[in-house]
Each structure stands twice: as C-alpha cells, then as structure tokens.
Amino acid sequence: KVTYHVPNEEFARKLYKKAVDANLNVEIRVENGQFIIHIE
C-alpha cells in the first residue's frame, strides 16, 4: 500500500489514471489543499 501527497491536481489525475489502468485499487481525497492518493 502506497500513499502519495500531491500538491498538484494535474499530477494527481495522471497518477490516478495510471493506477486505474494497472487495475490497482485507488482512493483519492483532498486534505488541506493536497491530494492524498492511496494505492493498493
């Protein structure tokens, strides 16, 4: 399980798409202006 803290929405979207394309379980949320992405 990996967690990324991404300040940039564009990068967060790319990361999310890559994980989904790889059939990984992804959860994304915004906290204090940062995008928190959990990948399992």
Rank of each mutant, 00 (worst) to 15 (best):
R29E: 06
K18E: 12
Q34V: 15
Y16F: 10
F11C: 15
E31G: 04
N32R: 04
L24M: 07
E40I: 13
I39D: 00
Y4Q: 04
A22V: 05
E10R: 05
R13I: 12
K17T: 05
V20F: 07
I28G: 00
Q34L: 14
N25H: 13
T3P: 04
K17E: 10
Y16D: 01
N8E: 06
R13D: 07
E31I: 11
K14P: 03
Q34W: 15
N23Y: 13
A22S: 07
R29F: 12
V26Y: 01
F35E: 00
N23P: 02
K18S: 10
K1I: 13
E9F: 07
G33P: 00
I39R: 00
N25M: 12
K14E: 15
T3L: 08
A12M: 07
H5T: 13
R29W: 12
L24T: 01
E31R: 05
P7I: 14
E31W: 09
I36A: 03
Y16E: 03
V2A: 07
R29H: 11
R29C: 08
N23Q: 10
R13F: 12
E40G: 12
V6M: 09
F35T: 02
K17H: 06
I36V: 11
E9H: 05
E9R: 04
A12Q: 02
F11I: 15
V26A: 09
F35H: 01
T3K: 06
A19M: 12
P7R: 13
E40F: 15
E31H: 08
D21H: 08
V20R: 09
F11W: 14
E9I: 09
V6P: 06
A12V: 06
K17G: 04
Q34M: 15
V20N: 03
I39S: 01
P7K: 15
Y4C: 14
N23T: 05
E27Q: 11
Y16L: 08
V26D: 00
F35I: 07
H5G: 04
R29Y: 12
E10H: 06
P7A: 14
V6L: 10
D21Y: 07
D21R: 09
R13L: 14
R29I: 13
V2H: 11
G33V: 07
V6Q: 02
V6S: 10
E31N: 04
I28P: 00
N25I: 13
I37V: 12
K18G: 07
Y16C: 15
N25K: 14
N23H: 10
V20H: 06
V20K: 13
I37Y: 01
E27Y: 11
N23M: 10
L24V: 03
Y4S: 03
R13A: 07
N32V: 06
D21I: 08
A12N: 03
L15A: 03
K17N: 09
I36F: 11
V2M: 09
I37G: 00
F11M: 14
E10Q: 06
V2R: 10
N8K: 03
N8I: 10
L15N: 02
V20D: 01
D21G: 07
Y16K: 02
G33K: 02
F11N: 06
V30M: 11
A19C: 11
G33M: 04
Q34D: 05
N8C: 15
K14H: 09
E9P: 04
V6R: 02
I36E: 03
H5I: 15
N23K: 10
N32C: 14
H5Q: 09
R29N: 05
K1D: 08
K14Q: 12
I36K: 02
N25A: 10
R29V: 13
N8V: 05
G33D: 04
Y4V: 12
Y4H: 04
N25P: 05
E9T: 03
V30H: 10
N8Y: 09
E10L: 04
N25L: 13
I39A: 01
A19G: 04
I36W: 09
N8D: 10
V30N: 06
E9S: 04
V30F: 14
N32W: 07
I28A: 01
A19F: 15
N8S: 10
P7C: 09
V26I: 06
N32G: 08
D21S: 10
H5C: 15
R13N: 10
L24S: 01
K1Y: 13
A19P: 02
K17D: 08
G33Q: 03
K14I: 12
E40P: 03
A22Q: 08
V6E: 03
A12H: 03
R29L: 10
Q34K: 11
V26H: 00
I39H: 01
V2D: 04
H5P: 04
I39Q: 00
H38T: 15
V6H: 05
E9A: 09
E27M: 10
K17M: 09
L15P: 03
A22P: 01
I28V: 07
N8F: 11
N8M: 08
L15H: 03
A12F: 08
I37K: 00
A22D: 05
L24G: 01
N23E: 05
R29D: 04
N32L: 06
I39Y: 02
R29S: 08
N8T: 09
E40Q: 12
R13G: 04
N32F: 09
Y4T: 03
F11L: 15
E10M: 04
E10W: 09
E31L: 09
L15D: 03
L15R: 01
N8L: 07
N32K: 07
K17W: 09
N25C: 13
A22I: 09
D21Q: 12
I39K: 00
A12T: 03
G33T: 02
Q34H: 12
V20S: 06
I36Q: 03
A22L: 13
T3V: 11
R13Y: 13
R13C: 15
R29Q: 08
I37L: 08
G33R: 02
K1V: 11
V26L: 02
K1P: 11
R13P: 02
V6I: 11
N25W: 13
I36D: 00
H5S: 09
I39W: 05
L15C: 14
Y16W: 10
E40T: 13
L24K: 03
N8A: 04
A12R: 04
E27F: 12
D21A: 13
H38A: 11
H5Y: 14
I28H: 00
Q34E: 11
Y4R: 01
Q34P: 01
K14G: 04
N25Y: 13
H38Q: 13
K17V: 06
A22M: 14
L15E: 05
I36Y: 12
E31V: 11
D21N: 08
F35V: 05
L15I: 11
N8P: 04
H38W: 10
Q34T: 12
I28C: 14
Y16M: 05
K1T: 12
N32Y: 06
N32S: 05
I37S: 00
K14T: 09
Y4N: 02
K1G: 14
K1C: 15
D21T: 07
I36H: 04
V6K: 02
E31P: 01
P7Q: 14
N25F: 12
E40C: 08
Q34R: 10
V6Y: 05
Y4D: 02
V20P: 01
N32A: 08
T3F: 09
A22N: 08
V20M: 11
N25R: 13
N23R: 08
Y4L: 12
A12D: 03
Y4G: 03
V30G: 02
N32Q: 05
K14A: 13
T3C: 15
E31F: 08
A19K: 02
K17P: 01
I28T: 01
A19I: 09
Y16T: 02
L24D: 00
I37Q: 00
F11D: 14
K1M: 10
V30S: 05
D21V: 06
F11E: 15
A19V: 05
H38I: 15
V30A: 05
K18A: 14
N23S: 07
A12L: 12
V30L: 09
A12E: 03
F35A: 01
E10Y: 07
T3S: 07
I37R: 00
K18I: 13
N25E: 07
I39E: 00
N32M: 06
Q34F: 14
I39F: 05
K17I: 10
K18W: 15
K14D: 12
K14R: 11
E40N: 13
I28F: 10
L24N: 01
F11V: 14
A19L: 15
A12Y: 07
A22R: 08
A19H: 04
V2T: 08
K17A: 09
A12S: 01
K18M: 14
K18V: 09
F11H: 10
E9L: 10
L24A: 02
N32I: 09
I36L: 06
I28S: 00
A12P: 02
